[in-house]
Amino acid sequence: MDMSSMPTIKSREIKIVQEIPISKTLKFWEGLKEGKVYATKCKKCGKVYFPPSADCPECLASEMDWIELSSEAEIETFTHVVVRPTTFQQYKPYTVAIGKLKEGVRVLAWLTGFKLSQISVGMKVKLVAKISPEGYATYEFVPL
């Protein structure tokens, strides 16, 4: 049976864009614009959170300090994403990596400025804040 020739009707079209609240992590988003990557630290139990969290899953306290993360990271793993989702079609294939910082937190972000063959697990890189060409506040790993 040739499934590509089966009769179908089209559903009605909708466009979905959600407005995501960031009031509790605003310092993080503002920080990116100033070139800083912030994490939160629980005032009660001392646990550090990245991504920043306004509430502490460890002790359930809601009093947090904002701390600026150090920039040096060690790459724990990575992948070069060739087949991209709809909203990332406009980009060239990109490398997604997870790096560990000296504060003990891990960060998932793009790794740029390297050829794929130059990247290895265990290599040291730098975490930097940036504003993307489309205006998204973001952060990425780059060469030291």
């Binding site: 793993t77 990575f78 992948t79 087949v83 991209r84 989702p85 997604v96 998932l108 972000a109 998204y136």
Partner: peptide, 18 residues
């Protein structure tokens, strides 16, 4: 996902690399 667009294969590829 919002900033980095990992796909489902990418999540498992991170495990394969490691």
């Amino acid at each position: 996902f919002h900033n980095f667009g990992p796909t489902f294969p990418a999540y498992y590829a991170l495990h394969a690399t490691a």
